[in-house]
Design a protein around this nucleic acid. Structure first.
Lengths: 213, 213, 213, 213
DNA sequence: GATGAATGAGGTTTCATTCAT
DNA sequence: TATGAATGAAACCTCATTCAT
């Protein structure tokens, strides 16, 4: 029972399936998504999906691939435009601003896409969000305390979004930890990461404590 | 005494199961881990595990809970010691340094635990990792380009670990994006996040470009 | 819901499953047999069967393996006994008699087993029996005509079981054809099988036409 | 004329489908052949096949039917010619020779057809073949031993193709066993097959041991 | 407490067939 | 007549959980 009994051209149908898949994957994650869910939402037969994709994994991978292509396109088109309108005095800061801003815009553009991508990224981990929240809240509140202290002492702007900053710091730390201790474990095993760590901290320290200078 | 001995054995058994679970979860992630895997590694009967845990999820949650407790303990004990030995001139930088440093040490201490918390544990099929890396590498290399440019222009130390810094920035951006656009979507939907973004960027910009000042 | 709620020891349960599988495979053939059929007959859970066998194919293969073992045992034990009681004058004929007789007995012993084995053998082809009957009947009736002619001319005993003989001849021819033209195609492609054919025919010819000598 | 042309095209199309089906069925057997395979090889649309055949079974049956017709034609035309050129002295041996020879020629003519009729067509997964061979090799080697013994004792020509003879004997025995113990089970259940068996053995025995007389 | 055989709901995937174009 | 996208029943198989021993 095709929706309306119509026969769609291949690419169209494929896109339709991917659209539904995106919604469901975003809502339930890869493992808790059933092919039936997608089939039902797309209002197609159970077998139809297998004419366009080898299996459930293939659907997910195709989605990721399309995300990558979208980002490519996204970042290519607009980078220059933004460097034109200068929110900051320094060219370099504007450049970094553009980069970060673009990335954020990309994620803002499509929440479902964001959810799928970020669910997978180190330092985000939404799959088990509600369980992790408990764990993370402790770290977050510690960082928040630090920030509040600095604000009280006048070293940091009182208008800053504390929660967001704390989130950013945690995300950065998480990810660096993952790289250092999981991905590149051997390389840094010797403990020669101290100097790197010093530098990284400086980045945040300068940023946080002297930003209003 | 006997009862205490038995209870003790029970606690030991529970810990043994959790230890095995940690290894397997770290290796295969939550979904691809089968209860059988844990049972086999722990060399216990299949039914035994259900005398200590309600179900598979309970094992995972208990693990997370123990991680939280471990972090609590870890950060309480040593935080002060470190603030004593001052790597930086400023007290506040030292404080932040201690916080980040401690967190990193925590993750360094136990790679399996790190893997579960930071990535693989709740994550998705390892197979997807490849694709995900492919996606991220594009963003990372863009950021790396920015950093290299700044280094060439003399605005940023040439001794900095570019890869690590880029990783940190991406981690921060990822997480903030998730908070802004997934978790707190409604709150920021109006687009009033511009000012926040400006501030966040400033943190990184100052940090990166003026760190050697 | 185990039969009677009992837990069987591994080997016993495996044997029980194989017994049921034999019956069903014999009745419906490999492809038309569903795992559910076996499960239902064995009155076990659907999953139980997969604790003893990797998959449906494994069940079938294990069955074949056991048949081979059974034949081994069967032919070893009794061969001597039979050569003692001599139905024919010649020792060699007795020997051949024993061989053929034993094989036939083996097949007679267990009709289900026979059905499975013979269903697969070249020259038997039961799987599509009813369709093949139509085709084969023509060949058979031709051979029957030959035999009848020979009987009328007095060259062959009138008491012989014509149908059985015709069947045997067809079976022999089928199998030789299969070997010659399918299995060992290249070897005999050159047409050098003429001499062999001559000899084979002689075997049957002498046998048929001079058997009463 | 036009209509005739179209019909002709129809017949041609049907033949083309059957030709492809023959190749695929021969290669993969009935069950492992997918309609898609045939469709792809015939380079026609998936629906087209159902305008010429009711279903997959109908294709197979039509093929068998055509084989029967081919054999009919084959044996009618040439049987007489061959009985003329007498390889043997006796008219009856020549006649039998012609019969067997013709049948073998029929199978030699078209290997794919042979494969379908003799084995693979209706048969089982090719994978099983290996196991089945393993089983049969034991019986075959036993028969081979008998033949070798007879050759050493001088009762049987040393120039005979032992493997082929053993194959023929096994084929005959298989088929008779099937008839006796599967198809006509009740009829022979009483054990009154002894006399028949005696006669059958005699056919082979005379043939094998006195063929050079 | 400990065991592991048994379970069966629930998931993915296949493929002969249909039917709108 | 020809097509091939769409179908969905039906098959196989998995695995967290139970429960008799």
């Amino acid at each position: 029972m095709v929706a309306g009994g119509l026969k769609m051209r291949g690419e169209l149908r494929k896109k339709q399936i991917l659209d539904c898949a995106k919604t469901i994957f975003s809502r339930k994650g890869f493992y808790d998504t059933q092919v039936d869910d997608i089939v039902e939402m797309a209002r197609i037969g159970k077998g139809t999906i297998y004419q366009y994709f080898r299996n459930k994994e293939d659907i997910f991978l195709t989605l990721l691939e399309s995300f990558a292509a979208e980002w490519e396109k996204f970042s290519q088109i607009n980078l220059r435009e933004i460097t034109d309108g200068p929110p900051f005095d320094s060219y370099h800061i504007n450049y970094l601003y553009a980069r970060i801003s673009k990335t954020l815009q990309f994620f803002q553009e499509d929440p479902e896409r964001s959810n799928i991508i970020l669910r997978m990224g180190p330092g985000v981990n939404i799959e088990f969000d509600r369980y992790f929240k408990h764990f993370e809240s402790r770290i977050i509140s510690a960082i928040l305390g630090d920030i509040r202290l600095a604000q009280r002492l006048g070293n940091i702007s009182k208008r800053i979004n504390r929660e967001l900053l704390a989130d950013g710091i945690l995300g950065a730390v998480y990810r660096m930890a993952h790289t250092l201790f999981v991905v590149e474990r051997e390389k840094y095993a010797a403990g020669n990461y101290d100097e790197h760590l010093r530098q990284i901290v400086l980045v945040f320290a300068h940023g946080i404590f002297y930003q209003d200078l």
